[in-house]
Amino acid sequence: MKKILRVALPPIFTAIALLVAWEIAVVVFKPAAYLLPSPIAILRAANIDSHQLINATLSTAMSAGLGFVIAAVVGMVCASVLSQSQFLQRGLYPLASLFQMVPLVAIAPLLVIWLGYGLSATVASAAIVAVFPVLANTLDGLRSTDPALRELFRIYNANRFTRWWKLELPSATPSIVTGLRIAAGLAVIGTVVGEFVSGYAGEDAPLGMVVLAAMRSARTDLVFAAVALSAAVGFVLFGAVSFLGWLSLRKWHASTLSR
């Protein structure tokens, strides 16, 4: 518990200090509310529109979560397949990297054309940005398996699947966790970009749509509230992945042992 506090308290204090400074700055310099609302004004706006914001947050969290899970599964499966064959790796991996270079904002309209407005397009958008870090890190981890341990499995006549399942995958776990943590943050970015392009208005409009609508009606306080909530979605997803990663590594990996 003491350890947790020691890690958690400094960033919490810093955040509180920044918010207080912001509040004071707004009181002292009195900028127009549509330029920079104060933290308290943002909270008030969030409270008034809480129903809409909660729905929006759930909708965004759903897209980001689904997109993340798809990216995680697709990324790990593809990396595992690629790791088993130099030929496939040479043929496909550069294409996968190229895929990463395509700006998401540019392909989001295509997703709407193919998948229509709504959840499918935002989930696809999240999955597309999140898949590459999972793929790249998993592949890297699978390929960095200790050759001495590979030889050990060869001595025991382990077949390819057994070697992957019992040696390469566990040994790649630290890299996979790193990839998943990066993917968690990216999934939320992908979701919100997807929502900008393919979002839908109404009761359960996602956070991306709330941001757009609030901007158009000069409700900067609501824009801030929605941005903060989308960051919170990313934070929760990141935290959950980090926790699961810690659980799987805590007993053996240097990153968790030495702390």
Partner: peptide, 21 residues
């Protein structure tokens, strides 16, 4: 180097050759 699997406990490391058989 011993070549133990760092993610397995002692018992499962010792049982590994049998497991793979």
């Amino acid at each position: 180097e011993g070549r133990l699997l760092p993610w397995r406990n002692v018992l499962d490391n010792v049982a590994l050759p049998l497991e793979l058989n």
